[in-house]
């Protein structure tokens, strides 16, 4: 069952367009939503949540059209857009006291369990918590109101590697029961290299691919060769390439080059970061 379905989302700004953004997320998985800064990640997430008014498009969450069931569905969604930077002078206890009233399925036992597990000191003010702690607190709130879909914008930015790793481990625990899904945006792709089940890649407001992580990486190859091998035909085939004094390296779709690959090219499996970098390079050269 699909927890989230996004279809043909469009939104125009004077200098930026979201174009036909479509993807879906099944129950029980982690999806990484990747793209460079300004590619449209936050706008997409906000459009999903109807915080930004899309020009057109259709959003379905847990099988229901979002706009007409917004309040009901928001009960089951845990949202964190950026750092938890509101009411930072208030104590955790006070914030919780306010937040819990909004949720019909709030469970104090779950709340206490996670506060305990994450070592959240309820007497502390939000500004006294580290970024990682605040993220954990946000997750605790979402878990306590028994959210099933977690939509998180850049939850790992600003965290040190240990805290990032811990957070991703928490995500994996969240989806272990097969009932919950996590959609999180990030530009730190090393986070996803291991744990993400699905990748949705947005570039300049368009979805390049949305598929399983392995399939995504497997559909690209990095080709390296000498300068004489860099023919015009090859240039056309590559998403983009870099030249140095001794040779070139470029990114290709695997189905594009498999038919006429010469054995003296070196072909490598790219990382998510490689793919993003080469796409960004193409953006610049085409611009």
């Amino acid at each position: 069952m699909e927890l989230l379905k996004v279809q043909e989302l469009n939104k125009s700004y004077p200098s930026f367009h979201l174009e036909d953004v479509s993807f879906s997320l099944e129950k029980g998985y982690i999806m990484g939503f990747i793209g460079m800064n300004g590619a449209g990640k936050t706008t997409t997430l906000k459009s999903i949540l109807n915080m930004v008014h899309a020009d057109s498009g259709y959003i379905e969450i847990m099988g229901k059209e979002f706009k007409s069931h917004e309040l009901e569905l928001k009960q089951d969604i845990g949202v964190m857009l950026g750092d938890m930077d509101f009411y930072v002078k208030k104590r955790v206890k006070t914030l919780t006291e306010v937040v819990k009233r909004f949720y019909t399925h709030w469970d104090d036992t779950i709340y206490a369990t996670y506060c305990d597990r994450f070592n959240i000191d309820e007497e502390k003010r939000l500004c006294e918590l580290s970024t990682g702690m605040r993220t954990k607190y946000a997750l605790t709130l979402a878990l306590s109101h028994q959210a099933r879909l977690f939509i998180l914008d850049e939850p790992t930015s600003g965290l040190d590697p240990a805290a990032r790793d811990e957070l991703l481990e928490i995500f994996q625990q969240l989806v272990e029961d097969g009932q919950k899904s996590v959609l999180f945006s990030t530009h730190i792709t090393s986070d996803l290299e291991k744990y993400a089940d699905f990748i949705t890649y947005i570039h300049e407001g368009k979805i390049i691919t949305s598929t399983t992580k392995d399939e995504f990486i497997d559909s690209y190859a990095i080709i390296k060769g000498t300068l004489p091998q860099l023919t015009d035909e090859l240039k056309e085939l590559m998403i983009s390439y870099k030249k140095n004094d001794f040779g070139f390296s470029g990114l290709m779709k695997t189905n594009d080059h498999s038919h006429d690959i010469e054995s003296d090219y070196t072909s490598e499996r790219p990382t998510l970061e490689d793919i993003m970098i080469y796409y960004a390079k193409r953006g610049r050269t085409h611009a």
Binding site: M51, L71, K74, L81, F86, Y87, F102
Partner: peptide, 14 residues
């Protein structure tokens, strides 16, 4: 200063 709007955005409110 308290980013009230982003707080409200998180909540299930119309």
């Amino acid at each position: 200063a308290f980013n009230d709007l982003s707080f409200l955005a998180m909540l299930p409110v119309s």
